[in-house]
Simulated assay, not measured.
Amino acid sequence: MPEVIFPGPDGRLEGRYHPQKVKDAPIAIVLHPHPQFGGTMNNRVVYNLHYAFHSLGFTVLRFNFRGVGRSQGEYDQGIGELSDAAAALDYLQSMNPNSKHCWVAGFSFGAWIGMQLLMRRPEFTGFVSVSPPADRYDFSFLAPCPSSGLIINGSADRVAPPADTTALVNKLHEQKGITITHKEMDGAGHFFEDPMMDPMIEEVKQYVSRRLTETTR
């Protein structure tokens, strides 16, 4: 998988780009957890999400937000990180101009950034939010949420309490025209430590595969 360096709004950004041989393959961008708490594109959840999408036929890009790894810049309270994600999507789309489907997946802080990106970019056809930190970040911007997607969390999550995730899902359920699928995995923590990682990834793959089948009929 080639390492890539592409221009961001505050300097170069470092990523891992995993193309398919098919020119019009769907594309997906994967966003990592909080930079100030050790989050990088090599986080296990992010890494496994990346390969899950690739195994389903997606061309995938994951990258380090500003100030992480070889990405230039400094942490910017989520504002700059959202701009980084938009720049990464621009790069991914420039490499795959014929792609018909575009997805965003994010873990924890990356889920919050991913949902904001979803609001700004109408080309997204689906999303996956893993362990969204609905207790500490405001998700009220999802009014209305522009795309159907999967929200997945653990019942034993001590970082992002399950009750807050359920409240977020219930608000989104009230909106018309989209379908939010919610999966709370019994016994899983915030990071889906083993043995919960594989079942979580399998849930994601089944959901995305089903959505792809529906859109290609």
Rank of each mutant, 00 (worst) to 15 (best):
P19I: 02
S129C: 15
H50T: 14
L212H: 02
N64I: 03
L31K: 04
A188R: 01
F6I: 00
I201G: 05
V204F: 12
L49A: 09
C145L: 14
G149N: 06
P7N: 15
F107K: 04
M119R: 12
S131P: 13
H182K: 00
H190C: 05
S147H: 13
V68G: 08
M95F: 00
G73V: 02
Q116A: 03
G15I: 02
Y51C: 03
R66H: 10
A25F: 09
R120Q: 14
V128C: 03
L142C: 15
P132G: 13
D186C: 05
E81F: 03
Q20M: 09
H190I: 00
G80Q: 07
F192C: 02
F141D: 06
G189C: 11
R210L: 14
N170D: 11
L172W: 03
S55H: 06
L172K: 02
P133L: 02
A111Y: 11
S155D: 11
A88E: 12
L61G: 05
P161W: 01
V128N: 12
G69F: 12
N64Y: 09
A143F: 04
A87N: 04
H34T: 03
P2A: 15
R136F: 13
A167H: 13
E174A: 11
E214P: 05
D198N: 13
E203Q: 11
V68D: 12
H34G: 00
I180V: 10
V130F: 08
I178Q: 07
L172P: 04
F192T: 03
W112S: 01
T59D: 06
F141V: 05
A167M: 03
F6R: 03
V30N: 09
L92D: 14
F191E: 06
K23H: 09
G69K: 06
F63C: 04
Q206H: 15
L61S: 07
V204P: 09
D194T: 13
R16Q: 10
A105P: 13
V45Q: 11
L92P: 11
S131N: 13
Q175A: 01
W112D: 06
G57P: 11
L118H: 04
S209Q: 15
R62Q: 07
A156Q: 14
A167G: 00
G189L: 00
P132Q: 08
A52Q: 10
V22S: 08
E74A: 07
P19M: 00
V30D: 12
T166N: 05
A52T: 13
P161N: 11
C145I: 00
D186H: 07
I152G: 07
S131D: 13
S129W: 05
R121P: 01
L212N: 10
A85M: 01
G15R: 07
F124W: 08
M41K: 06
S83D: 09
D90L: 13
